[in-house]
């Protein structure tokens, strides 16, 4: 036969070649784990075991703080939707899953607001670009929840009311702080220059731009 066989010599001590000591050692390791987990489990003391299993529906893994989860629409101080229908997020969305139909807002200072705001969570790739794109902290993905399974595809499309139901008031100052944001972040209270339009309700003094819930 033309097939060459290369014999690899693996010298080893008799104990290694007899397998038995290594087998006994291996059995010892597994047996230690078994005893520890078994008795911890039987006595109902999961803390004392090494078991890593999460019993899912009863126990849930807490998502990390920066997890991108289900979307929500933030609210104004008066509970209205914060979105101004600027169309940034549907434009940037790589999955084309945001549908916005704008309408005129009754409040003349706001101009636009969404009449329809729908996100198809089945098509969403959870990239978070919509959150990055939004100029006024109107859309967020920090619900620490994931899209729920549904029986029908259509149920996975979230409408404006549902998105707003998870919303809270943003800590970002409504209407922005205009040209003075640098000073505000720097913590220097400043009187606006003469002639500047200060939006109503804009507080003075240093304000944290966002509250991430950090400890």
């Amino acid at each position: 036969m033309a097939v060459g066989v290369k014999v690899v010599n693996r010298p080893g001590s008799l104990a290694q070649q007899a397998y038995l000591p290594a087998i006994a050692e291996g059995l010892g390791v597994t047996f230690r784990h078994f005893v520890k987990n078994f008795f911890g489990n039987v006595t109902g003391n999961r803390k004392k075991t090494d078991i890593a299993t999460m019993e899912y529906p009863e126990e849930k893994m807490k998502y990390p703080e920066r997890n991108r989860g289900l979307h929500r629409l933030m609210l104004r101080d008066d509970g209205q939707v914060r979105c101004v229908a600027c169309m940034m997020c549907p434009t940037v969305c790589p999955a084309h899953c945001i549908t916005i139909v704008p309408e005129e807002a009754p409040d003349g200072r706001i101009e636009k607001r969404p009449m329809i705001f729908e996100i198809d969570e089945l098509r969403c790739v959870v990239c978070g670009l919509c959150v990055e794109a939004c100029p006024c902290d109107a859309i967020r993905m920090d619900t620490l929840d994931h899209a729920k399974p549904t029986y029908r595809r259509v149920d996975a499309i979230l409408d404006k009311e549902e998105l707003m139901s998870r919303g809270i008031q943003s800590t970002a100052v409504q209407g922005g702080v205009g040209a003075f944001w640098r000073e505000r972040v720097g913590g220097q209270p400043q009187t606006p220059p003469a002639g500047a339009v200060v939006p109503a309700g804009a507080p003075h003094g240093p304000t944290p731009l966002r509250d991430h819930g950090h400890k």
């Binding site: 597994t30 047996f31 784990h33 987990n37 489990n41 075991t49 078991i51 890593a52 299993t53 019993e55």
Partner: peptide, 10 residues
Amino acid sequence: RESAMMQDRL
């Protein structure tokens, strides 16, 4: 069950 206990599973 036994294999699970040996491998730190349930």
